[in-house]
Design a binder for these strands. Structure first.
Length: 528
RNA sequence: GGGCCGCUAGCUCAGCUGGUAGAGCAACGCCCUUUUAAGGCGUGGGUCACAGGUUCGAAUCCUGUGCGGCUCACCA
């Protein structure tokens, strides 16, 4: 099935093999600057690479997933969502690896941002090999790359100038230096000796010195040169990039030329991925502007499989929204439908083609492998109701359902936690309720309404546990009619008595979910 | 200005390595003696933006046009 899959991850894997030829290992790369909270848009790149890596592996090929943390990048701007703004501001222009962690006790601001993501990725089935750029630069690993860039700086300049409005200045150098005294990049490279030594002066502290590229670690390449240098250094075969890079004159474009002309390498296979919108949760996605929606925020409401499903089921170059409003329910329903389809392979040739696409999406959505038999399914909407009935007590919900197998509980619990988090944080007011207790004051009712409730209470006690939902529901109508009430007027009364609202979940099944004893306890109070 | 993406049923979109147009919602009808945007069955509805081209055959590939969006040209 994998062989003829038309899923984008499989097609990309095919393309990598086609363009890069047979290799012992295919290097797939991703990476970002941890200059702020890593947001869900960044995650799209990570998961995209993961899916392609998995596709390669499932073809029996060897693939390596490297993730570069560029924490040797400059700290340019204090993100608005961070505390201690003034303290952070003191470290502007220094590499972010030297900026202190203001949220916890990590060794640095960069490391803190990195750790938060690294800790979560295994939950969604992503296991990259991390590369830390500060360490790499400091180790001298890139010394030769920098020297090469210096040797060919005029060629680089020509490439970059092609798309610049202002050409690079005559004394431009393809490297930048972090002052060894004040750590800022407010430096100017004054001279290069044609070999390993670079002289600079610092505008902030006035420091002047000569550094040996092989030993210093304080010199680095600017992004547009750094990226292709690393392609060559790591032998990158595949790396996707956002639309901001994939544009003529964008950094991918110039990096392609730089890797070929300067570093004697070939650019990786790539594709462009589009941005992600956030729906139903005010706030932007950018790490530099205020509120940030990050992977942990999404995992609070969506199970890991469902998170993967959203990304695996959408082509990378398509923009889509991650919703926190009622669409959450729709996404879960779609996922469940896809899951049912996976475990229900059709016979007819025609249906099979459609099925294969869905099935592939399902496979790729799994954190590990699909289970042997279909996981326990519960409609998310129903689950939300059950949780509210039990005030969020997941064990009670499982107990009342009675048919959740032991090995199905972990996944069920995960979904329940997400559902409960959603109900409490994002569900619209209409959707939420809590069952009254017998300590709550009675609602105001007319004599006829009290009588009807009383009659319903008797029916609940006598028949609810004997009859099924549908059979029992006639008792609701009977209670209304016999007391001269329109059923349409009586329903709100029952909802008010139970949850203090005019409306609620479909009544008959709602009563059964609550259980006869609890219902009786609440509505028998209206008996004369 | 360059590049990229989109334009498919009233709405949101799927279908895109070519083979007689799909889903959900909305609408309409019937059923379940009405309920958080409840459920079931059924019906109607599209010259797949437009114009050319390739092909036995194009929503799907190519070229051009129009409309919408994003992005680059400072940094990364």
């Amino acid at each position: 099935m994998v062989a003829k899959s038309t899923h984008w991850a499989d097609l990309t894997a095919d393309k990598i093999v086609r363009e890069k030829g047979e290799k012992d290992v295919y290097v797939c790369a991703s990476g970002i600057t941890p200059s702020g909270t890593v947001h869900i848009g960044n995650f799209r790149e990570i998961i995209s690479v993961e899916l392609v890596v998995r596709a390669l592996k499932e073809k029996g090929l060897n693939a390596k997933f490297i993730y570069s943390w560029d924490e040797y990048d400059v700290f340019r701007k204090v993100p608005a969502n961070m505390p201690e703004q003034e303290k952070l501001a003191q470290f502007l222009r220094q590499p972010i690896t030297l900026v202190p962690d203001v949220l916890g006790n990590e060794e640095s601001y960069a490391r803190a941002n990195e750790k938060r993501l690294e800790a979560l990725l295994p939950l969604v089935g992503v296991f990259p090999e991390y590369i830390y750029q500060a360490s790499e630069y400091r180790s001298g690993r890139y010394a030769q790359g920098m020297r090469t860039a210096l040797e060919k700086k005029d060629t680089i300049r020509a490439i970059l100038d092609e798309h610049r409005t202002q050409p690079l200045s005559a004394d431009w150098m393809p490297v930048s230096v972090f002052c060894t005294k004040c750590h800022r990049d407010t430096t100017k490279v004054e001279n290069w000796d044609g070999e390993w030594h670079v002289e600079y002066s610092c505008a902030s502290c006035g420091n002047k010195e000569s550094l040996d590229l092989r030993e210093t670690g304080a010199v680095k390449l600017p992004w547009r040169i750094d990226w292709p240098m690393r392609w060559k250094e790591e032998g990158v075969d595949f790396e996707p990039a956002g639309k901001d890079h994939h544009s003529e004159g964008g950094s991918f474009d110039t990096a392609e030329m730089v890797v070929e002309k300067i570093f004697d390498g070939t650019p990786p296979v790539s594709f462009q991925y589009d941005f992600i919108r956030i729906k139903g949760r005010g706030g932007k996605i950018s790490s530099s502007s205020g509120e940030v929606v990050s992977l942990p925020d999404v995992l609070e409401v969506y199970q890991p499989e469902v998170v993967r499903y959203m990304f695996a089921g959408t082509r990378p170059n398509t923009e889509f929204a991650i919703s926190f409003d009622l669409d959450v329910l729709k996404i879960y329903e779609d996922y469940d439908k896809c899951e049912r389809a996976f475990y229900n392979k059709p016979d007819s040739e025609k249906a099979l083609k459609k099925w294969e696409k869905q099935a592939r999406i399902y496979e790729l959505s799994q954190v590990d492998r699909p289970e042997e038999s279909m996981p326990y399914q519960i409609q998310i909407r129903h689950l939300c109701n059950l949780l509210q009935i039990q005030s969020g007590d997941i064990d009670k919900v499982i107990e009342n359902l009675g048919d959740v197998e032991e090995d199905q509980i972990p996944r069920f619990r995960q979904r329940a936690e997400c559902a409960w988090a959603w109900v409490q944080t994002f569900a619209p007011e209409d959707f939420r309720f809590s069952i009254k207790t017998s300590d709550d004051p009675l609602i105001e009712v007319s004599a006829a309404e009290a009588s009807a409730l009383s009659m319903l209470a008797d029916a609940v006690k006598a028949k609810m546990d004997i009859l099924d939902e549908k059979e029992f529901s006639t008792n609701i109508y009977a209670a209304a009619e016999e007391n001269g009430l329109e059923s349409g007027d009586f329903f709100p009364v029952v909802y008010r008595a139970l949850i203090g609202k005019e409306k609620g979940p479909r009544l008959a099944s709602f009563l059964y979910s609550i259980g006869s004893a609890r219902v009786f306890e609440l509505i028998s109070r209206y008996s004369a």
